Simulated scan of single mutants.
Amino acid sequence: MDEPVHPLISGLSPGQEVTITSRAVDRQHVAWRGRATFRANAHGRVVLDTAHPASGTYQSPDGMGLFWSMAPASGDPDVASFVPPTSREHTYRVTLTATADGHQLASRTVTREWFGSGVTSKKLTVAADKVAGTLYLPAPGTPRHPAVLVFGGSEGGNSTTATAALLASHGYPALSLAYFNLPGLPHSLEKIPLEYFASAARLLAARPEVDSRHILAMSYSRGSEAALLLANDYPALIHGAVVYAPSARVNSGFPDYGAFAWTKGGKPVAEKPIPLTHVSGPVLAIAGANDLLWKSPQWARQIVQELDAVSDQYPHKALIYPDAGHGVGTFPYLPSGTRLKQPVTRRVSDLGGTRAGNAAARETGWSRVLALLGALGS
């Protein structure tokens, strides 16, 4: 699902106008469509990686434009998101169709796979495993790789299964962790013990497929606070962090702003800047320059500045993407809106950025994450 395709059309007349459409159906049985019109070059070809659309659902050359720019058949695409499959048995198909002069010229269907070959998954429960989530492991026989503890933000539940499955498909064992709003867990983001995350990381480290010297925490938005706290407070266990739309400080609970979000040793973690003096691995902070939910671009830069100030020896970088908002991550190519139907806070429903800006950020940012993981242990 996170790998690009490179569509092209040949056999056209030079300068001939051709329209290419895309169509897919998501898990909720919503039909999505994209469209772009081109002029064939002097060789009678349209190469979507480099061709400028004359009109359509995206505006700049992009071989994957017909994938991420799809919109639902009805309604506002800025408040809708394509809902991908949830299990290895499910895939989704994108059909590309070329028409010219009122006639269909060609059609090709691309199957977007959820799991790489041989990847396995195992559901974890609080009753049986002391943590809730899903463990994804690469195909048997894959050499030991760095691993990733992945968890989401204020949405709660087990919201990062797609990211974890794709990481495992690239060879990196990953545990998609829920920490509230599931059976056996707190109902809301309130008084979440950091020890709970550490237990999940130890479970991951004990797997024979995992290079336990390189376990990263990866999270989004409110979860970025826990990821950075883990990297600082458990440096022998968590060796760095990847944080999307991050915060550089501990914030209050959610939706109860009078509660503490995190605890350690049974005591509340104070609402203050997150210390980063003990981090023992790389840190990548990824933000959209137009994040309207909170000041993640400023916080991403602050995270790197704090690591610079303590002369942190590991790679650390802030990636700030123009035209992207709070929807800056994680993996690319799924259509996604920029606004919420219901406000995520008392006042904010616009997450900022544009669909094209977020799509570009996800494509580039995801490649940087995979490159970081590939460099570990090499």
Rank of each mutant, 00 (worst) to 15 (best):
K267Y: 05
G329R: 02
L293R: 05
T19H: 04
T50Y: 07
L351Q: 14
P138K: 05
A128W: 01
R93P: 02
A227E: 08
V5T: 11
P14Q: 12
L307V: 08
Y257P: 05
P193L: 09
P85W: 09
L166V: 12
L334A: 10
S219I: 01
A248M: 12
R346H: 13
G65Q: 12
S280I: 00
T345K: 13
R213K: 15
G102R: 02
N232A: 05
L149W: 00
N232Q: 04
V328H: 06
I192C: 06
R301T: 14
A217I: 01
G184M: 11
R27F: 09
A289T: 00
G288W: 03
G266M: 09
T134G: 00
P255C: 13
A318D: 08
H214V: 04
R347D: 15
A42E: 15
V269M: 06
A127Q: 14
L334N: 10
G118W: 03
G152S: 07
V83R: 07
I9R: 06
L12S: 09
K130R: 13
L230R: 02
T109N: 06
N181R: 14
S367P: 00
P343R: 07
R144S: 13
P315H: 11
M64A: 13
S169L: 03
Y333A: 06
A36E: 10
N181W: 02
V283C: 11
S117D: 12
S252W: 08
T97H: 05
R35Y: 06
D101W: 11
W68Y: 13
A245K: 03
D78E: 15
V210Q: 07
N232G: 08
P183W: 15
V47M: 12
G253H: 06
V283K: 01
L185G: 06
S219A: 15
H43G: 10
R249P: 02
T142L: 01
Y196M: 02
S336D: 13
V150F: 05
A245P: 06
R213V: 05
G365C: 07
L319R: 07
D350V: 04
I274M: 03
G365W: 03
W68K: 08
S22N: 11
Y234F: 15
T86K: 03
D312W: 02
T134M: 05
S188P: 00
L373G: 08
T263R: 10
T161R: 14
G357T: 09
Y136K: 03
V148G: 02
G102N: 08
S60I: 10
P343I: 14
D101M: 09
I215L: 09
G377F: 01
R88W: 00
E306A: 13
A245V: 08
A200P: 01
S74A: 15
G153P: 03
P146E: 12
L96C: 10
S81C: 12
H90W: 06
G44M: 08
V94I: 15
V269L: 09
P315Q: 10
P235D: 12
F82T: 06
G352L: 04
S280Y: 03
S69A: 15
E190M: 12
H214I: 03
A371H: 13
T57V: 07
Y196E: 01
A42S: 14
F254S: 11
A356W: 03
S176C: 04
L96H: 05
H326D: 09
L216R: 00
L203V: 01
A360T: 14
S188H: 13
A147D: 04
